[in-house]
Structures are given as C-alpha cells and as structure tokens.
Design a protein around this nucleic acid. Sequence first.
DNA 1: AGTTGTCAAGCTAGT
DNA 2: ACTAGCTTGACAACT
Length: 302
Amino acid sequence: MKIGYPCINRSLGCSSSKTFRLKSYSENLLIEKINNNLDCLLKILKYNREHNILFFRISSDLIPFASHPVCTYDWKKLFKEKIKNIGYFIRENQIRISMHPDQFTLINSPDEDIFKRSKRELQYHADILALMGLDSSAKIQIHVGGVYGDKEKSITRFIKRYKKLSKKIKEHLVIENDEKSYCLADCLNLSARINIPVLFDVFHHSLYNNKESLKAAFVLFSKTWSLRDGVPLVDYSSQAQAKRSGSHTESIDLNDFTGFIKEVEKFDFDLMLEIKDKEKSVLKVMHKLKLSGKTKKTTKKA
DNA sequence: AGTTGTCAAGCTAGT
DNA sequence: ACTAGCTTGACAACT
C-alpha cells in the first residue's frame, strides 16, 4: 500500500499550484507561474521520495488556465522537456499519481457547453499525464456530477458523454462516490455499464451509502479495477465528525485510522489522505504502520 | 505585515 | 428568480 496526500506540501515553502487572476492574464505571468509550479512539483516529489511517500495528487492548477480560451500559449510544446523530466522521476521511483479536476468539471451536465469545457479540462489533465509518460495506472478522478432532477436520465447522459471522450482521457478516468448525489451503488451501476473503475471515498461513503459495510464496499469497488488500472485507489479524510459544526480536524485521528485499516487490511489499495496538514499526517500514519522512516535507495533504470 | 474579500468554471437547497 | 454554501488556497486590495 502506498499512502499519499493531495497537491500541497506544508514543509517545503513552495507551491505547485500558484495561479493569478484572469483579469491580470499575460503570457509572461503564465510562464512565470508554470515554471514555479513545475519546479515546486519536482521538489515535492523529491521530498516525498526521501520520506518514502510514493503516492501524490498533482494539482489541477499546475498549468493555470490551461483549458481556458484565454490561454493560447503552447505550454505543451514549450514545457515539454520539463514535464517529461518530472515524469521520468515519477516512473523511476514508481510513484503513483492521481489528479482531481474540481467541481466545475461535469460530463453529465445537460448544458452542452459545460460538457465541452469539461472535456477540454479533462484533456488538459490527460495531456499532463501523457507528457510525463505515465501509463493508465495514473488516474484522473471526477464525481458523476449533478442529478438535474432525474438521476437515471443523468446517469444515461453520463454514459453517452463518456463515450465521446478521447481514448487518452478514458484510459485515466475514474469515478468517485460523493456525499449527496451518487453513492457507491450508483457508481457501481455506472461502472457495470461502461467499465470505468470506481475510486472509493471512505468519508463520503460514511455520509451517503446503501448500508454496505466497509468490507462489502471494498469487495465491490475493488472488482472494478483491472490490472492496467493499477491497485485500486481510496480517499480517506477524518474531517467533520465535527464536535462543533464546521470544525475540521487539523491532523489525522490515529484511533479512527487504525480502526479503519484493521477492517480492510486484507485488501490491496493505495490511500490518499485528505487531511489539512497534508504530509504530516501521512508521515504519522506511515510511522504507525511502520512503513516509513528511512529513505530507500532505488536502483536506477536506463 | 496582517487582514479581508474575491476568484474561470456549477449544482443544490433554501428562500 | 435569486443567493448562500459547498471546500479551499491564494491572489489582490485593503488596513
């Protein structure tokens, strides 16, 4: 099992998701941010490697406005080498990668324009993975989307739209259960119809489910991952068991966590910890599970 | 230097 | 018909 964290490292003092206002868009500013973000991403990945953290979610803001019409700059061509180099580091160290386009990426929206924009956004994510030379075990996770007053219709629309996506997108795309519209059972239903892997969010499942136990859930979503998809991915967060509403736990609750791990220890999966203090919680957990500590020397290939 | 409002993109529930 | 909340970091415009 690899354990990872999303997008931001709090120990390094750099950010790989620096952006700027659309109003102040300029090519120079864009280039500056891309350079910063790519440099920082490599720095984070090196930090992770040193701490034996081999799973990471790359920020969707890596290339600001990448899929926006305002961005006519050919970043794919001009940053090709730099991105390729990061990809080399990822592959060399067998780091698992995921990405998570945000809430505006909706492939089942009745609005055709929203779908078109979403498709462009997904293509941008797939382009990054392709430039890095990553295979189909690198995943782009999205939610199923809105219900729009008719869930079955919206699921059917998802399927129709999914079929229009490029092969490059489909190779990486997985769906994740959410906390109010599409639960695990809905995702499984969809998966059975278009053969898309289901990424399991433990926290969302606890809020919205069909009464499947954790173990039953693991059996079910694990089956949706084939060999080429890599080990199944799971998101875990320990926020919002709020004693006061709105209060988030700053760091991971190790008791909760060990309880969770014990229940599913027979399963093989990579785990994304969505916790505010990011890598600190990962290190805590790895220490607890005795996965962490020393830097392992890798054998270099090619 | 520190604080607060706002930011490309959307859905939903509550009014 | 309209708006706040979602979740959250970071920019931008203020003290």
